[in-house]
Amino acid sequence: MPEITLPSSAEVIAAHDAALASAPVAVEATDVHGWVAVNHFHNRSLWAQEDLARRTQAPDAEIVANKRAIDRHNQARNDAIERIDEFLLSALGLVDPATLASALPRSTVSPGARLNSETAGSMLDRISILGLKIQAMREQTLRSDVDDAHRQSCGERLQRLIQQRADLGGCFDELLADSRAGRAYFKVYRQFKMYNDPRLNPALVAESK
């Protein structure tokens, strides 16, 4: 198989961290790197909305708005994961192009290749979330309104989170290397989110009658 340029975990982590250094900006995606950025943007937006939704003194209407924003960003986040997997599988030649946009894309893999239970896109989604956790925990270590014990505890957690992201990045790189070599493969797993679909959510169906 010819050499294929695929994103490494180091490149993805660097892009995630660079994005977190400035205000969130919605992006348009035309390739796998774009979809990685889209996924990260929606994870970042979800994080902010989840914090706001847990307020105890805000008007109910604001919490409802937060919840609906959470649903929108979560749907977009999962859609981005699917697009990432489509691009990666196409680049690796592990999916029938004619079925890529279908509900059940057909894998084209070497005999004996192991199926990875988690997709590469899902791994990048977890790496994105770990980046958000790392940023938030690092901020805790810099607070001046807490005691040393709080900062020390958060510092220890920060180091664990950094290690977890590095570990997961290594697993992502290994999966792509094994997939390229014909030793492993993954699939596009459609999420089929039902709660946002007025045809499938029983409560929304009932409202429409």
Rank of each mutant, 00 (worst) to 15 (best):
R106G: 03
R143I: 04
G121M: 08
A181N: 03
R126P: 01
R106C: 07
G112V: 04
Q152K: 11
G112C: 02
R160A: 03
P97Y: 05
H150K: 13
D145M: 03
V109Y: 00
V95S: 13
E82L: 13
A177L: 10
D147S: 08
L161R: 00
A103N: 07
L89C: 04
D96V: 06
A149G: 06
G170I: 05
D85Q: 12
R126L: 11
L175I: 04
E118M: 15
G121L: 05
A91T: 04
S117M: 11
S122K: 11
A166E: 00
R157P: 02
I70H: 04
Q135W: 06
N78I: 15
S144I: 09
Q140H: 11
A177K: 10
Q152N: 09
R106Y: 12
S128I: 03
Q159G: 10
D145G: 10
L161C: 01
K133A: 02
L124T: 14
Q75S: 14
R83Y: 13
N74W: 14
S102H: 12
H73Q: 05
S153K: 15
A113M: 04
S153R: 15
A120E: 02
R114T: 01
D145F: 12
D148P: 05
A69T: 06
R68M: 06
D148V: 15
A91L: 14
S107I: 10
L94F: 08
R160C: 01
V109M: 00
G170S: 09
D145L: 12
L94R: 12
L161I: 03
L130Q: 02
Q140N: 11
G93K: 13
V146C: 14
D147T: 07
T108A: 07
E86P: 07
A98P: 04
G121W: 11
E174P: 00
A113F: 01
G170Q: 09
N116A: 14
S117W: 11
I162M: 00
L104D: 15
I134V: 04
